[in-house]
């Protein structure tokens, strides 16, 4: 309405909201790093400085969700129940082993598509190791179309971080990432978040980083600027 002043105040209900936040993942030769900031926002308010959006799903797969936090939590919980050892049940009960990351990636795609007409408003990334033990990253849209990447950023600072990753890591399957060491990948992740925090108001507070190797999943928490 052009004359906004005369319009009556209208509360329209939407089942969705945007809680901001950024996630990214980089696949290395025999490892994978997947990380997200821990800020949760709504409009110009910071809800909390620590709301995890990266979830360990099994001993070799980690899921990160940005977008609508409630959907992200529900999605992670639903997937969790279907797969892994610590809480999830069906897959493990049936096969007595962890689901592989490529299988989990496919499960996520079908789960997202299952709500094609009332989507989970989440931009997801999956990180882990493939059957050869190589690092793998999968990126998704909210309705489940997905692709394997060597590096991927998503969320409110996606367009700040993705070009940076492309320049530092490369975008093709045969690329520098295979030579990048874990140490340099961690440095790239930290740099990406520090820079994104400067320009994106929805990114900040902490980086929660998951490092996946043959040995399992290690978690690190690093501070970011809180402004």
């Amino acid at each position: 309405m052009a004359d906004g002043i005369s319009a009556p105040i209208e509360h329209r209900y939407s089942p969705y909201t945007d809680n901001g936040g950024t996630i990214l993942a980089i696949a290395g030769e025999d490892f994978c790093v997947i990380a997200g900031d821990t800020r949760q926002s709504e409009g110009y308010s910071i809800n909390t400085r620590y709301a995890p959006k990266v979830f360990k799903m099994s001993n070799n797969s980690v899921l990160a969700n940005s977008g609508f936090h409630a959907d992200g939590v529900t999605l992670a919980k639903q997937l969790d129940q279907r797969i892994q050892e610590s809480t999830g049940e069906w897959y493990r009960h049936a096969h007595e082993k962890d689901m592989s990351t490529p299988a989990f990636a496919q499960l996520l795609a079908t789960t997202l598509y299952g709500k094609r007409f009332f989507p989970y408003y989440t931009f997801s990334i999956v990180g882990g190791l493939d059957k050869e033990g190589k690092g793998c990253v999968y990126g998704y849209d909210p309705v489940g179309s997905f692709e394997r990447y060597t590096c991927r950023a998503a969320g409110s600072a996606q367009n700040l971080i993705q070009p940076f990753l492309d320049s530092q890591v490369g975008i093709t399957a045969v690329n520098r990432a295979e030579q990048l060491s874990l140490v340099s990948v961690i440095r790239i992740v930290k740099d990406a978040f520090t820079s994104a925090t400067e320009r994106d108001i929805y990114t900040g507070d902490f980086i929660e980083m998951f490092i996946i190797t043959q040995e399992g999943v290690e978690t690190q928490l690093h501070p970011l600027k809180r402004d």
Partner: peptide
Amino acid sequence: DLQGTTYQSDTIATGFGAH
């Protein structure tokens, strides 16, 4: 809240209080 959004924090304020 009404959209199912959740969080935990050391301090919480809703509505006008959030601002």
